[in-house]
C-alpha cells in the first residue's frame, strides 16, 4: 500500500487537541445533518413545552404574590432545555462504548480530551438553536425579558454554561453505563430530578423536606437566576441558593464541571482496564 499514508508527523499536543476537537465536533454535526428527525424533535420540544405547560397546566396556575404564569414558566423551560443536554451525550457516549467505537478511537493517537470536548461543543451549538427557538415561541406567548439587554445576555450565557455542564454530566454517565439501552433507561431518571425544582411551580407549597431538595437542586438555581435576570415573576424562598441564585448557578456549574470533566476523560482513557 502506498507509503504516502503512513502517519503524518505527529502534531504537538495542543495542536492535536484543537484538530481532534474540531473533527469530533464535525462527526456529531454530520450525525444531526443525516437525522433531520432528531433535529426536528430537538426543536419541536420547546414548542410542545410552551403549549403543554404554559397553556394546559398554566390555565389552572396561580403564582403566590401575583404575576403571569407563562412569564414565571419561561425561565423554567429555558433551564429544562439546558438540563436536557444530559441526554444526547449520555446516549451517544454509551452507544460508542457499546459498539466498540470508543475502543477504536482509544487505539488511535488522538487527544482524549479533544474527542470529548468536540462532542460537547457540537451539542452546545445545537442547543443555541433550540434556546433561540424557545425564546421566539416564548415571545409569541407573551413572555418578555424585562431586565435589560445585558441581564438577558447574562441569563442566556448562564443557560449555555449550564447546558455545557450537563453534556459533561451526560458524557460521564454514558461512559459509566456503556450500553445504549441502559443509557435510555437512565434518561428516565432525569425526569424526576428535573421536576423536583422550582421550574414549573413555586417550591413554597411543597412539603418541607422536598422543598429543601428542590431549593438546593442546581437546576433551581439556574431557573431562579434567569427569573431575576429576565425580570420575570418569581416566588423564591430564603434558602441560600435562592437568595444568591446567579452565584449559586455559577458555583454549581463550576463544581459539576470540576467533577465531571476529569472523571469523563479518565473514564474514557482507561475504559475497560
Amino acid at each position: 500500500m502506498a507509503a504516502v499514508y503512513a502517519p503524518a508527523p505527529m502534531p504537538s499536543r495542543p495542536a492535536r487537541m484543537v484538530v481532534d476537537t474540531w473533527t469530533s465536533m464535525l462527526r456529531i454535526l454530520l450525525n444531526y445533518r443525516h437525522s433531520p428527525g432528531l433535529l426536528a424533535a430537538s426543536l419541536g420540544v420547546p414548542v410542545i413545552m410552551v403549549v403543554v405547560f404554559g397553556y394546559v397546566f398554566g390555565s389552572a396556575m396561580r403564582i403566590p404574590g401575583g404575576g403571569d404564569y407563562r412569564e414565571f414558566l419561561m425561565p423554567g423551560l429555558f433551564a429544562m432545555v439546558a438540563t436536557n443536554g444530559i441526554m444526547p451525550t449520555m446516549v451517544g457516549a454509551a452507544r460508542d462504548v457499546g459498539r466498540g467505537v470508543t475502543d477504536r478511537l482509544r487505539s488511535m493517537p488522538v487527544s482524549r480530551t479533544g474527542l470529548l470536548l468536540g462532542q460537547t461543543l457540537a451539542d452546545l451549538l445545537v442547543s443555541v438553536l433550540v434556546l433561540a427557538l424557545l425564546a421566539l415561541v416564548g415571545l409569541a406567548a407573551g413572555w418578555r425579558a424585562r431586565g435589560g439587554a445585558t441581564d438577558a445576555a447574562g441569563a442566556f450565557a448562564l443557560l449555555l454554561l449550564f447546558r455545557f455542564v450537563m453534556t459533561w454530566v451526560g458524557t460521564c454517565l454514558g461512559l459509566a453505563v456503556g450500553k445504549e439501552e441502559a443509557a435510555g433507561q437512565l434518561s428516565v431518571a432525569v425526569f424526576p430530578v428535573a421536576m423536583v425544582t422550582n421550574a414549573y411551580v413555586p417550591t413554597g407549597g411543597m412539603p418541607g423536606w422536598l422543598r429543601v431538595v428542590a431549593d438546593w437542586n442546581p437546576i433551581s438555581s439556574v431557573v431562579q437566576a434567569c427569573r431575576e435576570l429576565f425580570g420575570n415573576p418569581s416566588a423564591a424562598g430564603d434558602a441560600w441558593p435562592m437568595r444568591h441564585a446567579v452565584l449559586a448557578g455559577l458555583l454549581w456549574s463550576a463544581l459539576l464541571l470540576a467533577l465531571c470533566v476529569p472523571l469523563a476523560v479518565r473514564k474514557f482513557a482507561t475504559h475497560g482496564r
Binding site: 462527526r27 454530520l30 450525525n31 443525516h34 466498540g100 477504536r104
Partner: peptide
C-alpha cells in the same frame, strides 16, 4: 497499528 474488533465499530448515523 490498526484495530478491527468483534463489533462493526463505525458510526451508523453518517
Amino acid at each position: 497499528i490498526g484495530l478491527a474488533g468483534q463489533h462493526a465499530a463505525v458510526d451508523e448515523g453518517i
